[in-house]
Design a protein around this nucleic acid. Sequence first.
DNA 1: CACGAGACCTGTTCGC
DNA 2: TGCGAACAGGTCTCGT
Length: 277
Amino acid sequence: MPELPEVETIALALREEGHDTPPVVGRKIQGVRLLWKRTLATQPWEKWQSSLIGQSINHIYRRGKYLILQLSQNNVLFHLGMSGDLRVEIDSGEPAKHDRFLLLLEPDLRLVFNDPRKFGRVWLATDPLEVLSTLGPEPLNTSLTPQDFYRHIHQRKRQLKPLLIDQKFIAGLGNIYTDEALHAARLHPLTPAHTISQQQAEYLLDAIRQVLSEGIQRHGTSIDWVYQGGEFQNHLRVYQRTGEPCPTCSTPIERIIVAQRGTHYCPSCQPCPNNPV
DNA sequence: CACGAGACCTGTTCGC
DNA sequence: TGCGAACAGGTCTCGT
């Protein structure tokens, strides 16, 4: 469930632009611990130990749904899967339940990757592009122009929902923000991408940027017991609101399955395209 | 090449 | 009440 706004929020916190946690940037790594082998996306484990110890964390940033630690020599990349989280704590006592991977930092801290459902992964890479090269454009980056977006969407025949969730098409959207963006743009999730007008494409890009920005402002979405601290869940207009009135027109929100994903939309605000289902 | 289905996971919820 | 089945979802792999 961590999508772009949740990963951005975690990156900001780790960069110590809040003040709940001790600073991580600038610290030296003095150890590394693995508690679930399959969390490693790159092998072997021995290379992690020999390579990481002694390096400093120079920078922390986000690309798509990935969080990147830029070290003095190489990079550690995290993908949080659907239940992953990163936190900083004093390095004392045994790891908690579901902790999968630890970076021990001088003098007495640890950066903890916790991931109950084990979908998260961590990479060690000389160049981040080894991991990130297939990602589509950053939706919030203004170098993605409405004209570009329309051109790209116009040559795809896929339905909008599976297309927007495809990280190769655009990076950072997951199930929650895709449903929210399609509602804000008044587009049905099953609409074939190439059939929308240039103006509709521009509205859609605007909508994507609006919901992502609001998500970041509200520190992400906290659903179920996964991911804490956000409050965007209190401002969702369609996601997980099946049967509740649409905030725009009061029509009950409907839920369908698209590309095996639960998909929420307003049948009145987001009229069905000509060739549905 | 483009796309869809199945697998990977486990805590929670639902149904009998 | 209790237990198992269904569900949720991001991405990789495989098949068409």
